[in-house]
């Protein structure tokens, strides 16, 4: 059999590619966390129409969402040093431009992107939170900030999780662009391997599989987090236990079956006592 395609290389490439995994995760997790904080800020600025800031943020969001990620990466890569050089020149900031880590540019670019995309999600979900809850909180003496922190933000976050999750996953895939500024993420690590073995197809198959698995894992993680935060929809342990008791009773044909079902569904506490 001619040695055109060698499936075993797919497996043997994986450890080398995984060397880039920490960097990939670092980029996506850092830019997600910081980006979400900025995104929330942008959403609040937009909702409260804070003058000047509102216009600036609007342009930032529209620009970031309307330009390719690759272009933004290069803008950060070439633009940030220029800004720093000017800062050094005018204010004597004394920041060494040449030795700045490449990772910094990547993080700045991806943080911007996450911020711009999440801002819309946050705005939509914050505005979707029923105003009555805020009024109830204010009326009972809570400060606006307390009401936001205890009531509005948690609820908005729960609703925002699915869209934040899908943004996270697309950002995860987007990090593969980091290779263009020679940050060694999974994609770069893979290319290094393939440049030695010349088995590009095998490497890219391995790489694709790894991204696929990671995307699936993170999608699942976000679903779990969403379920945990939707505490009102969680089936309580008590209810679960009482349903179990009912099944046992039904199977054993005990007399209280009917009562058990009744009590179990309408009242968890009594069911536990029964």
């Amino acid at each position: 059999m001619p040695d055109i395609f060698n499936p075993s290389v797919i497996l043997s490439d994986i450890p080398a590619i995984l060397q880039g995994l920490p960097v990939t995760l670092e980029i996506v997790v850092f830019s997600a966390v910081i980006g979400w904080i900025f995104g929330l800020g942008l959403a609040l600025v937009k909702m409260h129409r804070i003058p000047v800031l509102y216009q600036i943020c609007g342009i930032f969001v529209s620009f970031t969402r309307g330009t390719p990620e690759l272009v933004q990466l290069f803008l950060a890569y070439y633009g940030l040093p220029v800004i720093i050089e000017y800062a050094n020149y005018y204010w004597g900031a004394g920041i060494p431009v040449r030795t700045l880590p490449k990772m910094l540019f990547v993080l700045v670019a991806f943080t911007n992107i996450t911020a711009a995309y999440s801002a819309e999600s946050f705005r939509a979900t914050l505005e979707g939170v029923d105003k009555g809850q805020m009024e109830a909180a204010l009326s009972s003496g809570l400060s606006r900030w307390s009401a936001y922190r205890r009531i509005v933000l948690p609820e908005a976050l729960v609703v925002a999780i699915p869209s934040l999750g899908s943004q996270f996953v697309s950002m995860l895939k987007g990090t593969s662009l980091a290779f263009v500024v020679s940050v060694v993420d999974m994609t770069s690590a893979g290319q290094l391997v393939a440049s030695r073995t010349y088995r590009y197809l095998e490497m890219y198959i391995a790489l694709a599989l790894l991204y696929w698995i990671l995307s699936g894992a993170f999608s699942g993680l976000f679903r779990v987090v969403e379920r945990l935060l939707k505490r009102n929809e969680r089936v309580s342990e008590g209810l679960r236990a009482s349903v179990f008791v009912q099944r046992v009773r039904r199977l054993t044909g005990r007399e209280e079956v009917e009562r058990g079902i009744n009590v179990g569904v309408t009242d968890i506490r009594t069911a536990k006592a029964v």
């Binding site: 029923d130 009555g132 809850q133 109830a136 009326s139 009972s140 729960v158 939707k230 009102n232």
Partner: peptide, 14 residues
Amino acid sequence: TAMVFQSFNLYKLK
């Protein structure tokens, strides 16, 4: 003072 609303306005996730 304390308000009671027509539509209850309970905190949904509490």
